[in-house]
Write a protein that binds this DNA or RNA. Structure first.
Length: 673
DNA sequence: TTTGAGACTTGCGCGGAAAGCT
DNA sequence: AGCTTTCCGCGCAAGTCTCAAA
C-alpha cells in the first residue's frame, strides 16, 4: 500500500515531472542509481557531483514545497474534517485499486521516457531545456572631449563632430604604440576614419600626417593617472558597481543551474589590431548596438529586455546551440558569441568528452601509426601525402592547418597548409641523417622552428613532394584538412587532427610525471618536477611567450638573494661549529640545537630559492598556461596530487579549480589517462 | 567537390589586484 | 605603509571542425 500511495503521489506530480525534468532526474538518480551499474552511468554520476551545490539548492526548495502542502490543516474544524477525511481516504483507496494497473503502466512508461531522454540528451543535439538570462552589457556611450582638449590639423585647432572625434580618440590613445607608425595601420585607420567624418571634415582632412593628436593623447594619459590616484572610497565604489553588474548580468539559469557567463560585456568599439602582420590592422571596429544582437533563450523564460528605446535584432529559441547572444563583427564578418564560463556544466562536460576521445585514441594509436607507416609506401600520391602529414601531426603536435583566405588575415600555416618555403631537407647534418628543418609562422604568428631527424622513407617522400615546385607552392598539394579528417574519422569515431595534440600532450605529462617525480623529494621539489613535465608539453606544443620585460632584472634580484642566503648559510654553519666546540667545554646542549635548527632552516630557504631560480630560467620563453588549460587531462594532475600528498591549490588556482571541478571530483590517485 | 556560415576551442598579451619586500 | 613583483582574469583574435547548399 505504501508503494501504491507512493506511485499515486507520483502520478499526481506528473505535471511537476514534465515541467521540471531536471529536478526529477536528480531525485530519480538518488533513488535508483544503485540499480544501474554500468560504467558510463557511474562516471556521469561522478560528473554531476561537482555541481552538487546547485542540486542541494533545488532539492531544498522542493522539500519546502512539500512541507507547505502538508501543513495546511487548520485546528477549529478538526473533528468534522477528520470524518470527511476518512471517507475521502476510503474513496481514494477504491479509486486507487481500480486504476492501479493503469497507474503502474503509466509509471513504467514515464520512467522509460525519462531514461530515454536522459540517454538521448547528449546525442539528439539539444544542449539545454531551459535558458534564461538578462542579455549583454553594452559598452558605455562615448563621452565627448572637454573643449580645452584640442585636435590640430595642419597646425590649426579644429573642432571635430562627435563621431569623427570618437574615432580620433581611438588613434590618439595608441600614439605610444609603434604600430601607429606602420603604413598599413595608418592607411586602414585613415580610410575608416574618413567614413565617420562630415563632408566638411572630409574635404578638409586629407592627410593623416598633418593631424596632431598629441593633446588628446596627453588628456587620456592624465585621465588614467587620475584614476590611479583616486581615493580608496572611490575605488571601492567602482568595485562595488562592477560587482553589481556581475551579479545582475553575469549569471544565467540553464536547466535549473545558475551558471556563470563567460563574457557578458559587449566588446567596445576601437581600432582593430590583429596579431602578426595583419592586413586589416588599424581598421575601425564599430560599436555594437542592441539592433545588432541576436538573443537566444528558451521560450518559457523571462526574455532579456533591450535598453529603453531599442530593439534586439532577433530573439530565438535554439537549444541546439550553447550561446546566449551573438552578433556579426565588422572586420572579418565573423560571428561573435556570448557563452558560458568554463566552470559551467555545458563546458565541463564537453571538456571531459574531449579527454575521453583522446583516451580512446590511446587505445588505437598503435594501429593508426602502423597504418600511416604502411601508407608511406602507397602508390597513390594523395595517400602518401596524407600519411606524411599525419606523421608530423602525431610526432610534432602540429595543428591541422585549414586554408585561409589570402589577404584577409596574417600569413600563417599549419600542417596541411605548409608550403615548400617552410621546410628544408638535409640528407646529413652533423651526426644525424635525414634531417628536416621547419621554419614557419603558426597560429597567432608564433614562429615554429625545429630541426628533426625523420625516417628515411619520410625523407624520400618529402623530396618527392618538393620536386618541381616553387617556394610558395603547397607542400601537400593533394591534401587539405577535410580530406585528412575524413580519413581519421574512418580510423576512429570522433578522431580529428587536433585529438592528436590533446593525446600527445596528456600522455607526455603522465609519462614525464612518472619519470621526474622522486618519492623522497620535498613538496617544492615535486612541484618543480610538475612544472618541468608541464614544460615538456608546452615545448611540444610550441607554446611560447615574449620574455617578460623585467625578466633580466628579476633574475638578477633572485640571484643576489641566493648569494645573500649562501653567505647567511656559511655564517650560520660557522656559528654551529663554534657552538659545537663550546659544547665540549661547557655542555650547553641548547645552543647547539638552536644553531643546528638555524642552519637547517637557512638550507631549506636556499633550496627553495634555487628551485625558484631554475624554474624561472627554464620558463623564460615558455608559456605553461595554454597547455594546462586546454591540453592536459586534469585528472592526471589531480591523481598526481593525491598520490604524492600535494595540495591541489599548488597546481591549480581558484579559477582553474572551478573549471576542473569535474576532474577533481572524479579522479583517484591511481587514475590512468 | 567546393564554399562559406556557424559554433566552438585555443592562444597570447595586458592591466589591475594581490602578494611580497623593505 | 609604500613600493615592487608576481599572478590572475579578461579581452578578443585566431584557430579547428561541422554542416549544408551550390
Amino acid at each position: 500500500k505504501i508503494f501504491l500511495a507512493w506511485i499515486y503521489n507520483a502520478t499526481k506530480q506528473v505535471n511537476f515531472f514534465f515541467i521540471d525534468t531536471h529536478k526529477h532526474k536528480d531525485k530519480h538518480k538518488d533513488k535508483d542509481h544503485r540499480h544501474k551499474d554500468h560504467k558510463k552511468d557511474k562516471e556521469r554520476e561522478k560528473f554531476k557531483h561537482s555541481n552538487s551545490e546547485h542540486k542541494e539548492h533545488s532539492e531544498k526548495k522542493h522539500r519546502d514545497k512539500e512541507k507547505l502542502k502538508h501543513s495546511d490543516g487548520s485546528s477549529d474544524k478538526h473533528r468534522e474534517k477528520h470524518k470527511e477525511k476518512d471517507r475521502e481516504k476510503r474513496r481514494e483507496e477504491k479509486v486507487l485499486d481500480a486504476i492501479f494497473p493503469f497507474t503502474l503502466m503509466g509509471c513504467v512508461l514515464l520512467w522509460f521516457v525519462v531514461i530515454r531522454w536522459e540517454e538521448e540528451r547528449y546525442t539528439d543535439g539539444s544542449k539545454w531545456r531551459f535558458l534564461e538570462h538578462k542579455g549583454p552589457v553594452f559598452a558605455p556611450p562615448y563621452e565627448p572631449l572637454p573643449d580645452k582638449v584640442k585636435f590640430y590639423y595642419d597646425g590649426k585647432p579644429m573642432k571635430l563632430s562627435a563621431p569623427a572625434e570618437e574615432v580620433a580618440t581611438f588613434f590618439a590613445k595608441m600614439l605610444d604604440h609603434e604600430y601607429t607608425t606602420k603604413e598599413i595601420f595608418r592607411k586602414n585607420f585613415f580610410k575608416d576614419w574618413r567614413k565617420e567624418m562630415t563632408s566638411e571634415e572630409k574635404s578638409k582632412i586629407t592627410d593623416l600626417n598633418k593631424c596632431n593628436f598629441s593633446e588628446i593623447n596627453e588628456y587620456f594619459k592624465a585621465q588614467s593617472e587620475a584614476r590611479k590616484q583616486m581615493s580608496k572610497e572611490e575605488k571601492q565604489k567602482i568595485k562595488e558597481e562592477n560587482e553589481r553588474l556581475l551579479q545582475e548580468y553575469g549569471f544565467c539559469v540553464m536547466d535549473n543551474h545558475k551558471e556563470r557567463i563567460g563574457n557578458f560585456r559587449i566588446e567596445p568599439p576601437g581600432l582593430f589590431r590583429g596579431r602578426g602582420d595583419h592586413p586589416k590592422m588599424g581598421m575601425l571596429k564599430r560599436r555594437i548596438r542592441p539592433e545588432d544582437i541576436i538573443i537566444n533563450c528558451s521560450k518559457d523564460s523571462k526574455h532579456p529586455k533591450p535598453p529603453p528605446g531599442t530593439k534586439w535584432k532577433e530573439v530565438r529559441h535554439d537549444n541546439k546551440v550553447t550561446w546566449l547572444a551573438s552578433w556579426t563583427e565588422n572586420i572579418q564578418g565573423s560571428i561573435k558569441y556570448i557563452m558560458l564560463n568554463p566552470s559551467s556544466r555545458i563546458k565541463g562536460e564537453k571538456d571531459w568528452q574531449k579527454y575521453e576521445t583522446a583516451r580512446r585514441l590511446k587505445k588505437c594509436v598503435d594501429r593508426i601509426r602502423a597504418q600511416y607507416r604502411e601508407d608511406w609506401k602507397s602508390k597513390e600520391m594523395k595517400i602518401r601525402q596524407r600519411a606524411v602529414a599525419l606523421y608530423f601531426i602525431d610526432k610534432l603536435a602540429l595543428r591541422a592547418g585549414n586554408e585561409k583566405e589570402e589577404g584577409e588575415t596574417a600569413d600563417t600555416v599549419g600542417c596541411c597548409s605548409l608550403r615548400v618555403e617552410h621546410v628544408k631537407l638535409y640528407p646529413k647534418m652533423d651526426d644525424q641523417e635525414y634531417v628536416v628543418e621547419f621554419d614557419f609562422l603558426g597560429k597567432d604568428s608564433i614562429r615554429y622552428y625545429n630541426k628533426i631527424p625523420v625516417e628515411k622513407r619520410v625523407f624520400k617522400n618529402l623530396q618527392l613532394f618538393l620536386e618541381n615546385k616553387q617556394p610558395e607552392d603547397d607542400l601537400f598539394d593533394r591534401l587539405n584538412t577535410s580530406i585528412l579528417n575524413k580519413h581519421l574519422q574512418e580510423l576512429m569515431d570522433g578522431l580529428t587532427a587536433k585529438v592528436f595534440r590533446t593525446y600527445n600532450a596528456s600522455i607526455t605529462l603522465q609519462q614525464q610525471l612518472k619519470e621526474l617525480t622522486c618519492p623522497d623529494d620535498s613538496i617544492p621539489a615535486k612541484i618543480l618536477s610538475y612544472n618541468r613535465a608541464n614544460r615538456a608539453v608546452a615545448i611540444l606544443c610550441n607554446h611560447q611567450r615574449a620574455p617578460p620585460k623585467t625578466f633580466e632584472k628579476s633574475m638578477q634580484n633572485l640571484q643576489s638573494k641566493i648569494d645573500e642566503k649562501q653567505n647567511q648559510l656559511s655564517a650560520a654553519r660557522k656559528q654551529l661549529k663554534a657552538a659545537k666546540a663550546d659544547h665540549k667545554a661547557s655542555h650547553d646542549d641548547k645552543t647547539v640545537e638552536v644553531k643546528r635548527k638555524a642552519v637547517q632552516r637557512i638550507e631549506e630557504q636556499l633550496m627553495k630559492l634555487q628551485v625558484q631560480a631554475t624554474d624561472r630560467e627554464e620558463n623564460k620563453q615558455i608559456a605553461l598556461g595554454t597547455s594546462k588549460l586546454n591540453y592536459l587531462d586534469p585528472r592526471i594532475s589531480v591523481a598526481w596530487c593525491k598520490k604524492w600528498g600535494i595540495p591541489i591549490e599548488k597546481i591549480y588556482n581558484k579559477t582553474q579549480r572551478e573549471k576542473f571541478a569535474w576532474a577533481i571530483d572524479m579522479a583517484e590517485k591511481d587514475y590512468e589517462f
